[in-house]
Design a binder for these strands. Structure first.
Lengths: 233, 233
DNA sequence: AAAAATCTTTGATCTAGATCAAAAAACTTT
DNA sequence: AAAGTTTTTTGATCTAGATCAAAGATTTTT
């Protein structure tokens, strides 16, 4: 059987292992802002699933039924354009929350796992209920939204104004900072996504990404440890 | 005296005219979500100022002392890059709120008036106070943030994936939609900003913007009424 | 209303990154 | 471990939009 088989049956993680109290992403998650009663409630209504590489989590246009939280692994958030091209909005890391939007009707973007990922899902009604009665959660959501706006602003400068090599360098630095935030070594970094994903994220082609990496290597700005692992000088 | 003199002395709008009850932007503003008591409070602590073309409202790096609301006119939100280039994050219209950020410490972007604009300012402490005790205001802020994220996502696709002519066309359509939202005719539209601003917003050069407009005219996609007014076919 | 300043358009040329093509490397399956 | 598949890199060529340059419009000042 192929490694990346989308139709692979998923086994729901058994409750013992999925418990919030054992969640390594809790500290960086929205759940980290909840009190014990709230976490207990989340623990009871959340579902935790293991996703394989390239397995879809939700798709643009689908009705919004759940919100999601990344427990481990990575996720890419992307939009398919009418002409079939893909634009990647961002990559998610453990502790990142997704699925909320302004209209709450249908998902605007699609999400799929990059490599193996554990994702918790919350039915919107139950999560909204919890949120409604908790200013802490609302405040945390607001804060995360502001951070996302600021990140998107930086990203629009990167895409709009920087050359290919500089976009790549900023991308590597962002991964480094993100890793630090969740307690991983910030150098060297690993690239969970492939070259095409990097291209679709930075608004470049795969060839330009490849050439850019080669040149950054020659310029001694980075050192490739292997295809998906690099050291930033 | 030059029309766009930055150092023009401002006359604070007299309270009678600046009253919230007479504000034509109230319906589209955050203030439109407030009850009478809250509006009364806002009315008492807000300050309303007239800005002239190119006059700064706040500057990136300055300590955040106030939030702002556009009462009339237009504003550009931009970031100056290290090399002196400008990236415009967006254009604001009556009813738009600005100044809030995730860290609340310093402004990340700069803001200046495009043409004459009336802007209300709120001292952060007084506004935060109001917000703290009003779930409606918080909810409205959250909603606006989501809309901004979604707008930025669309914008990143426009900048990253579309050709010059298509970027311009999307830009005109966005202005049209925005005008409709605030009760102005959605066609023809006026362009309050100049060609350089459009270029800095769409990550193009002024020459490419100019040529793009000429070509859209030739393709019968738009009809220029004058330099700053156009009809979308 | 003429002169000066600013903004916009048009023309000629250049280039970063796209596209087309193929080799090399890294994985998967048998 | 050989064959097949997918991903990444490298090479050659092309092009949309940048850059450099100057002419027209429009606005501001005198």
């Amino acid at each position: 059987m192929k490694k990346n088989d989308l139709y692979n049956q998923q086994v729901e993680k058994q409750s013992q292992l999925a418990k919030c109290s054992l969640c390594s992403a809790k500290r960086f998650s929205i759940c980290g802002k909840m009190d014990e009663t709230q976490v207990k409630k989340v623990d009871s209504f959340k579902r935790t699933k293991n996703y394989k590489d390239k397995q879809p989590i939700f798709f643009q246009g689908d009705p919004v039924k759940s919100y999601f939280n990344v427990r481990s692994g990575n996720v890419k958030i992307y939009r398919l354009l009418d002409d079939g091209r893909m634009h990647i909005m961002g990559f998610l890391y453990p502790g990142d929350f997704m699925g909320l939007s302004s209209d709450q009707d249908t998902y605007l973007n699609s999400a799929e796992a990059i490599g193996n990922a554990e994702i918790c899902s919350f039915a919107i009604s139950e999560f909204d209920d919890l949120n409604k009665n908790s200013p802490e959660i609302t405040k945390e959501l607001l804060k995360r939204n502001f951070q996302e706006i600021e990140f998107m602003q930086k990203q629009s400068i990167i895409i709009g104004k920087l050359h290919a090599k500089d976009r790549l360098m900023e991308f590597f630095k962002n991964i480094s900072a993100q890793r630090k935030k969740i307690g991983l070594p910030d150098n060297p970094i690993s690239l969970p996504m492939n070259r095409q994903d990097i291209a679709d994220y930075l608004a470049l082609t795969i060839e330009t990404v490849s050439r850019g990496i080669t040149e950054l290597k020659n310029d001694q700005k980075i050192k490739m440890i292997d295809k998906n692992k690099l050291y930033i000088n």
